[in-house]
Design a binder for these strands. Structure first.
Lengths: 363, 363
DNA sequence: CCGAATTGTGTTATCGGCACCTTCACAGGA
DNA sequence: TCCTGTGAAGGTGCCGATAACACAATTCGG
């Protein structure tokens, strides 16, 4: 043994510390066949550090050693333990995303984009569903922070004060997605729901006149829907139109709401010429209900939605809507996170993506 | 100092080991404001163990001490480090789910169910998108195993041999979801796509006769679609019908495929009376294309889909389909995982859920 | 041909919790 | 008075990996 260490060796220490202690069981081996760095090291007759280097910075290891270690890695079927790595390196490689529900086409597309964006840098996506509750969101934020996610994605821009405080204190990159705000927690990727909604409504007003109605889901803890409603109102106001409150219908975010919406519209004293819905889901429901009742769209009632879902262009008549770059929002969020974690604070941490008014046959 | 330890103390050890070593910097403090158990302990003037006890078994701590520790916990804003906990306890509390894509209504619903099911036991869901590639799936399995997930959910029942071997060796609970198989890796929650498809097709044959066609997405690395196709063929065979291969159309899984499908059907020498599609998405596309072309459904062509998506019942005519308990598949998967992780191997690790033939106006 | 720089590898101390064990104070029985 | 049991709190080592450093061997400049 040519190498002699001047310091006290591990064995010596064991003896010193082991005074009066019962001896350790030699090996626990609870996890079936899962080999550790040390097993590989023993197999290749090197230290654990050398194995770790082969895995993460192979150029720093001599070719023949590297060879031997690689063989040992194969032989033992080693799987690196990213939990341990995360503990010491303070980087988990996991990004959390908190969404209202996963079973929503818009959100699912955003998650798909994010998942792909994160995968490029070997990061994984952990998701939590808050069920449109800001309180649940807060709980999830706590949980994710405990899990030491490297960054967080939040849906929307309105959160409890405690959530905001937690995130500020945590000091990790945070992306709020799907909407715009002047005062982000950290970064934003989304479109202005107010502007987008206003643009449809302005179009409707110009083409069909001031007799217009709104149907939308509940805005509670949902700033996207709230802002679409605000956009509707802004466009109305800007056009100098005054509307009675019954022209603003609150309903469920479901296709089946179409019936209810059309019922209410037919019951209005002044029959609207046009209808703007906070989502294509509701708009499609209304359109199909009109079809069932033989109401001509857009002849009798023009209908426009929001979000340009897959089926919107296929409906007869095809639905007028606003295209939101759903997938891209997720991708941008991943990119912002990547930049932030790479040390470079993104130059433009507020990414306002473009929406597109898609005029089809229904309005 | 009343307390004297018979063993060599930490300080002594430092001195022994520290011979010739430069002294440590007193504190690193890289992570902003994140307090550790030790910080809380110092604040409350107790040991870390006492703090840990207050967190996990408070009854073992004297009330006044507990009080003091609680105050310290609040004051320091302590967040438990689940990464460290995972390392020592060998339980990460994370379950991985590998899906083809997130932006698919069926899958999104399953994930929603799973997410809710897991949340009940404080577990988190980590998702990965394989993009309908078994090779990517294998990569994701490796990655998730490295992250030490407690259990895994896989979409479908066909995987690479290496994937199966990895999972068997890992010894963690695995749920394959969304389809049925006789030979699961570990557990299954789903419906038999073969039986479900066969049931629709048998119905179509009975009602509309033997002139029938099939339109489906690519079955490559997608056993659900493959099995729906097999179900179609089984029903045909069982009815003693022989069909030319042109009656089986492969297309994209998108509404826009409707045009192509209808084109091909109209070009067939013997015009089919009924069409079965591997998904409501394709069926709806076909139905709407018929509407655009003025083809009567079901008068001229009856159309049935698979999976009973939200919009299917709203279409005019409403789409005949098979209802799959999407949300429940996810929930069941979570339950199976919960049972397996609680020590009790589930009695029925193969959960064959019921499908339901939903007959509406389109067929 | 010697000291300095470079390269390759080894050693140690954590990372933040928790399991396991020990110590201490004190109460109550012998 | 001594012993022992019990409840409350503290000490130690380790989970598996890595950063930081330490040292041996080799290369290289002058």
């Amino acid at each position: 043994m040519p190498y002699v260490n001047a310091y006290i060796t591990a064995d010596d220490k064991k003896n010193i510390e082991g005074i009066g202690k019962p001896s350790m069981p030699p090996r626990r081996n609870s996890t079936a066949g899962r080999s550790r760095l040390e097993d590989v090291a023993r197999h290749a007759r090197v230290s654990t550090m050398t194995v770790a280097r082969v895995l993460r910075e192979p150029h720093k290891v001599a070719p023949d050693t590297r060879e031997r270690v690689s063989a040992a890695l194969d032989a033992t079927g080693y799987t690196p333990d990213l939990v341990a790595r995360a503990l010491v390196s303070k980087r988990s490689g996991v990004v959390g995303a908190i969404v209202p529900v996963l079973s929503n086409s818009l959100i699912a597309d955003v998650m798909q984009g994010m998942s792909e964006g994160l995968a490029r840098d070997q990061r994984q996506l952990m998701v939590g569903a808050s069920g449109f509750s800001a309180a649940n969101e807060e709980t999830l934020v706590r949980s994710f922070l405990s899990r030491r996610v490297d960054a967080l994605y939040l849906t929307g821009t309105s959160h409890t004060p405690a959530t905001v405080q937690l995130l500020r204190a945590a000091g990790i990159p945070v992306v709020e997605g799907g909407n715009m705000t002047d005062d982000p927690i950290d970064m934003v990727a989304g479109v202005s729901n107010i502007d987008a909604a206003a643009s449809v409504v302005t179009y409707l007003l110009k083409r069909y006149g001031p007799e217009i109605a709104y149907a939308g889901a509940s805005p509670v803890d949902n700033d996207r829907v709230r802002d679409r409603h605000l956009g509707f109102r802004r466009a109305i106001r800007d056009a100098g139109v005054r509307l009675p409150p019954e022209c603003e219908i609150q309903t469920e975010m479901a296709m089946a709401s179409g019936r209810e919406v059309i019922d209410k519209i037919l019951a209005l004293p002044k029959r609207p010429r046009a209808l703007f819905c906070s989502s294509d889901v509701i708009a499609a429901g209304a359109l199909l209900e009109c079809q069932r009742r033989g109401i001509d769209v857009p002849g009798t009632l023009a209908i426009a939605g929001y979000d340009d879902l897959d089926f919107s262009r296929e409906l007869v008549p095809a639905l007028t809507s606003v295209r939101i770059p759903r997938y891209e929002i997720g991708m941008r969020a991943a990119e912002l996170i990547h930049q932030a974690l790479s040390g470079k604070r993104p130059k433009r941490p507020v990414q306002a993506l473009d929406f597109e008014l898609v005029i089809r046959d229904s309005a």
